[in-house]
Amino acid sequence: MPFGNEGKTTTKRAAGATRHAFPSKDDGNENNSFHPTHPAHQKPQKGGSSYKMILTAIYALLFYLAAAVLLLGVGYKIYQYARIPAPLKIPTTPAPTTRRGVALRMLREVTLFESLFRANKWIWLFGWIFHVALLLVVLRHLRYFLDPVWSWVVLIQPIGQYAGFALMLGLTGLLIRRIAVERIRYISSPSDYLMLVLLLSIGGSGLLMRFVLPTDIVQFKAFMLGVLSFNWQPMPSDPLLLLHLTLVIGLMLIFPYSKLLHAPGVFFSPSRNQVDNPRERRHVTRWAAKLEDAA
């Protein structure tokens, strides 16, 4: 092993030089008994660089698979949604009478969850908290995919930490509702619970990594950038990180086949995206217009 700087008092900085390539077989101080992850308090570990390589390969491949399923799956669903005929003029009234008004209504719908607010205040409260928190948390995670990190991501990054707790609060509220309200429990299917539990587990493992048992995020970012640039770097093998990633990959895989499709689906809801102008303009779907032309 190169101990290039041992005994020197100063070292010139050379970019790209090997750094920290020190062996650390023995941990020299025994007086740090406070932390559970301190190696002195763990069983001896076998060296496993081949294990780490296999782990890295598995997760890199899983990420490619999950990304492909997510993008192609959601893309296909959007294609389907866009082609499904909406033969009737059925905007939920009172509805805007102009296209601009519809755009505004849709904007309110996806940012404020307006119709949910009118329907049920409790679901709106927890649901809205969850979605906004999820947005902040996801934006915070951009730092693992960008180098250098965009300055606005750096700026909002710390907010995402606290959004993590809001996310758990929102999800817990929604889960309690599903279990405690008998009417809702009766109509709940396994997938309804699965989504909430999955998201709660993702949030829980993430918060644990942030506040209790951190992983090596610099090494993890190297892995993530490596996955993106097809130049794989070893990933940290902390169980919490692996759990977190496995669950996220699961979420990506399940997205195009589940109720999570409400995200693209809301934009294709005829009752929300139609202009209320049946008297001004006759509503004819494309396929119906074709039949009329033929006749």
Binding site: A21, P39, Q45, G47, G48, V218
Partner: peptide, 25 residues
């Protein structure tokens, strides 16, 4: 089968430009 930090043959990733320390402990 955890970390192979102790084997020392798998250098950690560090961002470019990270200065060396003065000495080993």
């Amino acid at each position: 089968n955890a970390d192979e930090a102790s084997t020392g043959n798998s250098p950690y990733f560090s961002p470019a430009g990270l200065p060396n320390a003065k000495a080993m402990v």
